[in-house]
């Protein structure tokens, strides 16, 4: 639906960051040597983390990592949106708010005081949210961190004028295809059944239950899932905490009650 191959030459790409750990941009830097091939067809017009000569928009595609956590960032993301034809929320922080949105469940002002004592009154700390609380997002690239192969897939799609298509199934599908042992069957709190696929079940692959970092997939049956967890004698506190790890501010999880 979106035609992006620029008739004026290379695709103009910006890679920008808001508040986060920087790990998703690092996954882009980790794309080398593919990155060196990519710059043949894209122009990195703005990538402050990697280069010192940067220009403002307009951009064909902007990849923005990080959550929105300050008033200044709200303005920044609105400007980036205006300057970009296609906006990719890069990573779980940009999609949902990330781990720092755990603070949204308490008093953020209190949390600020706790961390910075009394001398931090100048620090602006809002509840941490994904980009789409403030602007429209064209593609959600989930994961904490994102899977670098998805970055290439998305750019390739855009270069050939195709809309990148997200996966509409859960991590369990990828886990079963890879024939990993089911950790939920072993009584472990694995978020696979309700979590967006695309990571190739990376955690179950090394015998670690899924932490749900890619967020709830669109048809996730949360009610049944929670019932199953309770049948496995997993405590309500443990269940609730698990939903409040990486994507606690996802609309489906925000007001989740586990009783």
């Amino acid at each position: 639906m979106i035609f992006l191959v620029s008739d004026k030459g290379k695709l103009k790409v910006a890679i920008l960051g808001l508040t986060c750990c920087g790990g998703c941009q690092l996954e882009i830097l980790n794309l080398e040597p593919v990155l060196l091939d990519l710059v043949e067809v894209i122009e990195l017009v703005n990538f402050p983390e990697a280069q010192s000569e940067n220009k403002d928009g307009p951009y064909d595609v902007a990849f923005v990592e990080g959550s929105v956590t300050t008033r200044e960032e709200i303005e920044r993301i609105k400007n980036i949106r205006k300057e970009s034809k296609f906006l990719v929320a890069l990573g779980t922080c940009a999609c949902y708010g990330g781990v720092q949105s755990i603070r949204n469940f308490g008093d953020v002002e209190e949390a600020r005081k706790q961390v910075y004592d009394d001398d931090g009154s100048h620090i602006d700390a809002l509840p941490a949210t994904g980009l789409d609380e403030h602007v429209n997002v064209d593609y959600y690239m989930r994961g904490c961190p994102v899977d670098r192969s998805e970055i290439v897939d998305v750019l390739t799609s855009l270069l050939i004028g195709k809309t990148p298509e997200p996966k509409h199934y859960s991590v369990c599908v990828e886990c079963k295809l890879a024939e990993y042992a089911c950790l939920l069957n072993e009584g472990k709190l694995c978020m696979g059944p309700v979590t967006n696929a695309g990571c190739k079940a990376r955690c179950p692959a090394v015998s670690v239950p899924c932490d749900g970092c890619r967020g709830p997939y669109d048809q996730a049956n949360l009610e049944s899932f929670i019932e199953i967890l309770k049948e496995k004698k997993i405590s309500v506190e443990d269940i609730l905490r698990k939903f409040r790890m990486y994507t606690s501010w996802a609309p489906q999880y925000r007001n989740l009650k586990v009783i």
């Binding site: 508040t19 920087g22 603070r103 209190e110 961390v115 620090i123 904490c144 932490d211």
Partner: peptide, 27 residues
């Protein structure tokens, strides 16, 4: 923007601490 890890780590379980603090820094 501030992330307030030291505040939101309170109330988390011991085994969640290492994966959560990993998210302080990607590098």
């Amino acid at each position: 923007g501030p992330r307030l890890f030291e505040a939101f780590l309170k109330g988390r379980k011991y085994d969640e601490v290492p994966p959560l603090v990993s998210r302080i820094c990607g590098i």
